[in-house]
């Protein structure tokens, strides 16, 4: 009985969250197309989401590519398939690891900041002040953040693809003694353009999901400083989980 009630409550909460998410999505979409267009603010957010995330994404994908090469080499050696290492690294990075890891890192870095920023603005009535000054807060705050995330995540992933493959190359050639020319040839042997584009499309969807979730968390914050803390944590947790869910379904359905 208690358990059922608990499950019921959790389900209701989830439904409410979903409702807010899609309501915000609709609202952001409708305010996106209406003037005024705040290009300067969009640009500022693109720098925050994209440019400022380059170091994190660089390191993450570099080490992922390196470890990937190391692991597959050790495994594939057992059945003399070392020549496939480059392909495995290239495919796993472009299709899966670069988009997902980039999205997770950016969710932690940028999603938390978005939730904290909007949450603070909510509890100090700055969002009310925006509304009172005839500026729609969704248009002013949410639209540039979400747009910037949708635009920048694909670019970060393209960077991540290159860096990760370079990491794999470094390990294979410098550490494991592979022939540079054949490694590169092998890398691109099975790689198709659709592998790369699928990763990029995923990245755009992840960008939409994490940024919108973070904005929703921040926008509906209540309960002072503690509430802001809660919103921030939840933005990262639910953002990361949603990215992983979405990853599975996108991979299953689309590609």
């Amino acid at each position: 009985m208690k358990l059922l009630e608990l499950i019921g409550r959790a389900l209701l909460r989830l439904l409410e969250e979903l409702g807010r998410f899609f309501q915000m999505l609709g609202s952001a979409a409708s305010w996106l197309i209406r003037p005024p267009y705040d290009v300067a603010e969009l640009f500022r957010q693109m720098v925050r989401v994209g440019v400022d995330s380059i170091p994190v994404v660089f390191l993450t994908t570099l080490f992922t590519g390196m470890v990937l090469a190391l692991q597959t080499f050790n495994g594939f050696k057992r059945f003399h398939a070392e020549s496939l290492v480059g392909s495995v690294v290239a495919l796993s990075l472009t299709r899966e690891l670069a988009p997902v890891l980039t999205a997770l890192m950016v969710t932690g870095r940028v999603g938390s900041a978005m939730a904290a920023e909007l949450g603070t603005m909510r509890v100090t009535e700055q969002i009310d002040a925006l509304t009172a000054l005839g500026t729609e807060p969704v248009q002013y705050l949410v639209v540039p953040r979400v747009t910037a995330s949708v635009l920048m995540l694909p670019l970060l992933v393209i960077l991540g693809d290159f860096v990760g493959m370079y990491g794999g190359y470094l390990v294979a050639v410098q550490l494991l003694g592979a022939n540079p020319i054949t490694y590169i040839e092998n890398s691109f042997q099975y790689l198709e353009i659709s592998d790369v584009t699928s990763g990029i499309i995923k990245a755009a969807v992840f960008g939409l999901i994490f940024s919108l979730l973070a904005c929703v968390r921040g926008y509906y914050t209540e309960g002072g400083a503690e509430g802001v803390g809660r919103a921030t944590t939840r933005a990262v947790v639910s953002g990361s989980l949603s990215v992983l869910f979405a990853d599975f379904f996108l991979t299953k359905l689309l590609f």
Partner: peptide
């Protein structure tokens, strides 16, 4: 949103935009 532009409101706690300077706050509307 258009109707709200007819209004000006000052809040009990100020509700200034804390990421902007005083100038930008007043210049905002």
């Amino acid at each position: 949103t258009a109707v709200r532009k007819k209004f000006g409101m000052s809040f009990q706690e100020g509700a200034l935009f804390d990421s902007m300077s005083v100038f930008d706050n007043v210049a905002f509307p």
